[in-house]
Design a protein around this nucleic acid. Structure first.
Lengths: 217, 217, 217, 217
DNA sequence: TATGAATGAGACTTCATTCAT
DNA sequence: AATGAATGAAGTCTCATTCAT
């Protein structure tokens, strides 16, 4: 019955990953020892090593699970017909995930920031991070181009640069939130992002484009 | 002649810090061994340990020197009488430093990102990072408030939130540049930041402001 | 089955302590390296460090085990009803232990002397040594007082000073033996101690005290 | 002018030795670093190394100076014509030196105890200590034999064993005093030693030996 | 002679990983 | 499959000693 075995295997792997996330969020990848993870998971060394080849694979798997979840956000949000509405939905989807005030959200931010640093010297994690960045930029870029085609965003904007800036804004907020969870709440962050969005959007109902009537949200 | 000794001492410390920065940028704080730093610096263990009490002090000194340089940017740029001009100068000063395409700039970004991660569990580095963040936010916030008093930025903006967003934008760009130095050049980043700035600024030469109906949040 | 584990743990700790005693006796606490102990014990560094937190704890445990054994001597010997007989038994018990000509006795003396020196700057070992000294002095002092009450030892003796002197005599012999195992045998030492004892003891069967029949050895 | 140079050299050596004694008394031979000694002496490394070949030579010289001083005690005291009086003088000379309550005496005891431990594994120091022990035993033994020839000490005593016991008594007192300087004063120790002496001495004016007139303290 | 910066062997300790049970 | 004791390479740091100045 491989199905049962696979389910069991998957459950055990998740148990290890959850423990690892808790430890990594607390002390960072390289200051967390395997012993810390074993204790947090309540498993023996032998057990953990039968599911993962080593610490590096655990780090990679933690980063990978983060990446997988992120990828779903893009797909879900960009389906909407109206590009501006899709942009807003995408922003809300990301904000909901990254600014999540729950304990899980806090762990995610902290591990996320560590991964960003780790990406500087781990080829695997770098690839993941860059893939995630590209996916977000591509999704945003496509929507921006559609909006520009509709005359809803000034053609003068470089879609790539604009997409990059929107992601940067998110990333900076995640950093600030990771350093100080009290820094601001989810709505504050979302408002800022949507403000940027509104500032560059033309009102579609007016003949002449004007930034002045834009409603940030 | 303490001057000679002090100069020598300072030179040696800098030699170690330079070596450490090179190593940290390459492999991260905790995957860099003291042996790596010794080799890079071309010094013996004993020599290095006579200038620093240990690896932690080196990490702290590296982060500290970064922080010290950053602090000077705020002061230099905010002196201008016109708040909008001061904001632009501040943006350019930060951009010039953080997006510096030279090797030194690249090292700075990479070490900076590591420090951001390290700040999550090192009280000292966290304090430095938060101090730097506060200083930047305060400088920006003061200028924004002056601009609002002059009617140059819509009063509806929360100065604190706006300042925070401008910093976030910078931080996100630094991250993206650190991951991929080819991602964009200094001008692209600066243009994006100045674009945001322009989008929220009223034209002072016009009787009626044009940003007036927008409610950023 | 904690019993098995505990037994195993205790056996391993003892294995380390035995190795440490051999090394310490040979080269002293601070000139013995952990590598020496590891080799002598036939264990790896990791194994030893899972039983002891470090070298200091091993030193303390070695001194402690010595102290524990010594404490039993006092209790066993002082139970006798006749105080003079109890004094002799105590002297014989100590002599049997401290002048033991076996290899174990030799190790004990050598480590003991090192502990005496170590007690000068290690608070833990000093406390142990002083506790052992007090226990011996107290046991002797109580017996001396009982003998004085019975008129068997001249009331003019200060019991505390006499006890201290008897202990000093033992300690000096241990030193001399440690320096030169051929210096004298157990009987010689015991004879000297019992000689001192006899010299201060009145013959209970005689009306008048006489030191003259004593045979110092 | 070699005389001046020699005097200078000797003064410098003594300066180092004094510093070393202070350090050794405080922390023991092997936990005192050369840096400690340099600082205490107020000399540079190069200076110290031009007077001593290394730490071992300093340790040996410290032990040696102690030994030299001790040797003078024997000679001075044993010159007296009456062997019993000479024994008392010898005891007082040793007591005066070893139980000296001054700071110098305290240092001497502490360094002495360390030397005793060091003698277990350093051939040089062992030789010194054994030479000192032999000298004392020989001086005492000679006096005891003279006293026995005069009928002042019972012939039944083994002179060697008796001498050894008297030295042991001193050594034990030194130990106890080093551990706790408040343990007893010089007079108490001297009284105990003289008490032992009296206990084995026959009254020369009486035909029959009597221990009973002895005054233990 | 004197200095003290520099050396580098070696000390203690940790921890990712293995493997006999 | 699971355990956890054991391994040992590698890490950080110290300190006796040297040598250019």
């Amino acid at each position: 019955m491989p199905k049962v075995d696979d389910a069991h295997r998957e459950a055990r792997r998740q148990q290890v990953l959850d423990a690892a996330i808790a430890c990594f969020a607390r002390t960072g990848f390289h200051q967390t020892s395997m012993a810390d993870i074993l204790q947090e998971a309540g498993l023996s060394a032998g057990a953990v090593y039968s599911y993962f080849s080593g610490k590096d694979e655990i780090i990679a798997a933690v980063a990978e699970s983060r990446h997988r979840q992120e990828a779903q956000l893009n797909a879900a949000a960009t389906a909407h017909a109206d590009p501006i509405e899709a942009l807003h939905r995408l922003a809300r989807a990301y904000a909901g995930w990254m600014f999540d005030p729950s304990a899980a959200g806090k762990l995610r931010r902290r591990v996320g920031v560590q991964s960003w640093a780790e990406a500087l010297h781990s080829p695997e994690i770098r690839a993941q991070v860059l893939r995630g960045l590209s996916a977000a930029k591509d999704a945003l870029g496509a929507l921006i181009r559609r909006a520009q085609a509709d005359g809803r965003i000034a053609a003068a904007f470089d879609p790539e640069a604009l997409a990059r800036a929107m992601v940067a804004l998110f990333q900076g907020f995640v950093l600030q939130l990771a350093w100080d969870e009290q820094a601001a709440d989810r709505d504050t962050h979302l408002a800022a992002v949507e403000g940027l969005l509104a500032a560059i959007t033309r009102d579609p109902r007016r003949g002449a484009a004007h930034g002045r009537e834009r409603r940030p949200h």
